[in-house]
Measured scan of single mutants.
Amino acid sequence: VKVFRALYTFEPRTPDELYFEEGDIIYITDMSDTNWWKGTSKGRTGLIPSNYVAEQ
Score class of each variant (00 low, 15 high):
1 V>D: 08
1 V>Q: 11
2 K>N: 08
2 K>E: 05
3 V>W: 11
3 V>H: 06
3 V>Y: 09
3 V>M: 11
4 F>E: 01
4 F>P: 00
5 R>K: 14
6 A>P: 02
7 L>F: 03
8 Y>K: 14
8 Y>N: 08
8 Y>A: 12
9 T>S: 12
10 F>C: 06
10 F>N: 07
11 E>T: 14
12 P>S: 07
12 P>G: 07
14 T>I: 08
14 T>Q: 11
15 P>E: 14
15 P>F: 08
15 P>L: 10
15 P>H: 09
15 P>Y: 07
15 P>I: 12
16 D>H: 11
16 D>C: 10
16 D>M: 11
17 E>R: 05
17 E>F: 11
18 L>K: 01
19 Y>M: 09
20 F>M: 10
20 F>S: 01
20 F>W: 01
20 F>G: 01
20 F>K: 00
21 E>C: 08
22 E>A: 15
22 E>I: 12
23 G>F: 04
23 G>Q: 03
23 G>I: 03
23 G>A: 03
23 G>S: 03
25 I>F: 09
25 I>N: 03
27 Y>A: 06
28 I>R: 00
28 I>Y: 01
29 T>Y: 15
30 D>G: 04
30 D>S: 05
30 D>R: 02
32 S>D: 08
32 S>Y: 07
33 D>A: 07
33 D>G: 09
34 T>S: 14
34 T>W: 09
34 T>K: 14
34 T>C: 13
35 N>V: 14
36 W>G: 01
36 W>E: 01
37 W>A: 00
38 K>Y: 15
38 K>V: 15
38 K>H: 13
38 K>P: 05
38 K>I: 15
39 G>C: 01
40 T>K: 09
40 T>E: 13
40 T>R: 10
41 S>A: 12
41 S>V: 15
41 S>Q: 05
42 K>V: 04
42 K>T: 07
43 G>D: 07
44 R>F: 08
44 R>P: 03
45 T>A: 10
47 L>S: 04
48 I>G: 00
48 I>A: 03
49 P>D: 05
50 S>P: 11
51 N>F: 10
52 Y>H: 07
52 Y>G: 06
52 Y>I: 06
53 V>M: 11
53 V>R: 00
53 V>I: 09
54 A>W: 11
54 A>H: 11
55 E>W: 10
55 E>M: 12
56 Q>A: 15
